[in-house]
């Protein structure tokens, strides 16, 4: 029904153009994300990383070109079908985007309740299970999001994104605003969940540590296109000012040298 053959990529971006007025952000951009990988989108500010991600989510429509997710184009597709695609992915927004009017419990329960097939008892157990999965103590379940720290909000938002068992998960700046300790443990959490659940992860990040320690492949957005897309070892070989500054600048080298053996190979 919705299952694509195994050889098609989970996300396929083809000939994508994005324009704001006369300002071209993406010019004939192509990108493929394979099933099961962790892919990072990297680029300078204004390079259109977040826009690309929002287009993949169907929140914005590109001027030209198409995006297929699970082999189904997002544009000119019946709403019903797009709706079904949306139930198969989870999104972690930068600020968590927890519904501030609801408690933590209700935030995580909301997608489950919307299905209207599970009873409250079941939902309770499922919410508790998801809280355990993201290492949040159960006593926090009845708090309101405004009473929680940034790190906890991110974990709970992740639990909410995972509650419908998505195959694909989008992370927008997963470690932004977290202290190094928290961001380290959040990275570990994502890695662990990826291994356990066989997720595909698409991530936008500025944090080199996060990118280096998680990604199988990295797509560098520059000059209105995907400059290079591949494992870290291939990316750093590219001669380009952005790549040099980002990966091989002082900060970059520090991050790379700190994690020499942990670079995952896809």
């Amino acid at each position: 029904m919705l299952t694509a053959p195994a050889n098609t990529p989970i996300i396929e971006v083809e000939g994508l153009w994005t324009q704001f007025g006369s300002h071209v952000v993406h010019r004939d951009l192509n990108l493929r994300v394979e099933y099961g990988e962790i892919m990072s989108l990297v680029g300078g500010s204004g390079s259109g990383k977040t826009t690309l991600m929002r287009q993949m989510l169907g929140l914005e429509t590109p001027a030209q070109g198409g995006i297929k997710v699970f082999g189904i184009p997002l544009q000119n597709t019946p709403r019903e079908l797009v709706h079904r695609i949306r139930r198969r992915w989870g999104v972690l927004f930068q600020e968590g985007a927890l519904y501030s009017a609801l408690t933590v419990f209700d935030n995580i329960a909301l997608p489950l309740r919307e299905l209207r097939v599970f009873d409250e008892d079941y939902i309770h157990d499922m919410v508790m299970l998801k809280l355990d999965m993201v290492d949040i103590e159960r006593r926090h379940a009845w708090k309101s999001p405004s009473d929680l720290s940034g790190g906890m909000v991110k974990r709970i938002a992740l639990a909410r994104a995972l509650v419908l068992e998505p195959e694909l998960i989008f992370l927008d700046e997963p470690t932004a605003g977290l202290d190094p300790d928290r961001s380290e443990s959040f990275v570990n959490l994502i890695r662990e969940l990826h291994k356990k659940l066989g997720l595909t992860v698409v991530m936008v990040s500025h944090d080199l540590d996060t990118i280096v320690s998680l990604s199988h492949r990295i797509a560098v957005l520059a000059e209105q296109r995907v400059l290079v897309h591949g494992p870290l070892a291939d990316v750093v070989k590219v001669e380009h000012p952005f790549v040099r500054n980002f990966f091989l600048g002082e900060r970059g080298l520090r991050a790379l040298s700190a994690l020499p053996t942990e670079v995952p190979q896809s």
Binding site: A6, E34, Y35, G36, E37, E167, G198
Partner: peptide
């Protein structure tokens, strides 16, 4: 990276 087992070729029952 091998595709996850949920995409096994056998038709889903």
């Amino acid at each position: 990276m091998s595709p996850p087992s949920t995409l096994a070729a056998a038709p889903v029952q």
